[in-house]
Design a protein around this nucleic acid. Structure first.
Length: 308
DNA sequence: AACTTGCTCAACCGCCAATCC
DNA sequence: TGGATTGGCGGTTGAGCAAGT
């Protein structure tokens, strides 16, 4: 039977936190301590008597629990987690013990910030493997899958979400623009289209600059993919469709990213069917190292349908 | 000073495959 | 052989903290 010290210590720890936070709580003094010790004794006995499948402790680990777990692994090695509770005297289930060891106590763990090199590696591996954090972690010695998973969520997920949102905004704006144009066309056949105020040469130059930007961005891609950049459109009608109403720098950037999104072929990766991987692979072309599929560029993708 | 918001990360939960009995 | 147990993993939560309002 384990003494109730662990439970009592933990409870007092929580009580002291409450006092610090200004919450009214029962004071621990010389008078009440004996009763408390007795109470905790009864409670721990009850917990133990209910068997090892009930009464597991949860929440943050104490230094004492860590010490017990480290001692256990030193003596018995990793992998026998089901016997930790009975052998080490921990009131933690096997899963909890394993997790604590793997993610926090292992002596070979690296502490501190993830380096830029490691960050780049994480990005590359995520493009390759998606959310298979355990595989990614195996390529980063000293880092746990939990750590990498957390790092990804806090540092990269937001960026990919922003890019996704941006693209959705662009698509929405484009559709509105098309509806607007169709509406004007229906109202009056003689009315000047808003896009006609921009000369064809302007559009041609602008689109050429877009392609130039695009070309720079994908310079690091395999050669066979460079040829997939679309050729310049020839007719005025096609140019009108491609050229949106650019009013400010933000819209200009939006348009560039929409072109980028439409023109770079989406890589086909092993086991990568979910949308996240596709988007995550697109947003960071600088780190793009995986092999593209042999699919040829489909120029129809460059011109959104007026019927949508 | 008080409150809100956002970030970080340890820890939990549920699922699943492998292994055990 | 099949049910029970175990270990591994990905998704998610929530406490603690800092920065912003």
């Amino acid at each position: 039977m384990k003494p109730p010290s662990i439970y009592r210590a933990r409870w007092r720890e929580n009580q002291s936190k409450k006092i610090v936070n200004g919450t009214k709580t029962k004071a621990v003094d010389a008078q009440t301590q004996p009763q408390e010790d007795a109470l905790w004794g009864v409670m721990s006995e009850e917990i133990c008597s209910r068997g090892m499948t009930k009464g597991w402790r949860k929440g943050p680990w104490t230094a004492e629990e860590d010490r017990l777990l480290i001692e256990y692994v030193k003596l018995h090695g990793e992998g026998r987690w089901s016997s930790v509770a009975s052998v080490a005297g921990l009131k933690r289930n096997a899963k909890s013990c394993r997790l604590r060891w793997v993610n926090y106590l292992r002596p070979d763990l690296k502490k501190g910030q993830i380096t830029s090199h490691a960050e780049k590696l994480i990005l590359e591996l995520h493009v390759r493997w998606g959310n298979r954090w355990a595989i990614i972690a195996k390529n980063l010695p000293g880092r746990t899958y939990n750590e990498i998973k957390n790092y990804w969520r806090t540092h990269f997920k937001k960026k990919t979400q922003n890019f996704r949102d941006k693209s959705e905004k662009i698509k929405s704006r484009f559709l509105k623009s098309q509806k607007f144009k169709q509406h004007h066309h229906q109202q009056s056949n003689t009315e000047t289209d808003i896009n006609s105020v921009v000369s064809h040469n302007d559009k041609k130059n602008y689109y050429a600059s877009i392609l130039n930007k695009l070309g720079n961005r994908i310079a690091s891609l395999p050669n066979e993919n460079v040829n997939k950049i679309p050729t310049l459109p020839q007719g005025n009608q096609e140019m009108d469709i491609l050229y949106p109403n650019i009013a400010d720098q933000e819209q200009d950037d939006d348009f560039f990213y929409s072109i980028l999104n439409d023109h770079i072929p989406v890589p086909v990766l092993e086991s990568s069917s979910n949308e996240d991987i596709m988007w995550d692979g697109l947003w960071n072309l600088d780190d793009f190292q995986c092999n593209f599929s042999a699919t040829t560029y489909d120029t129809s993708l460059a011109i959104p349908s007026l019927n949508t």
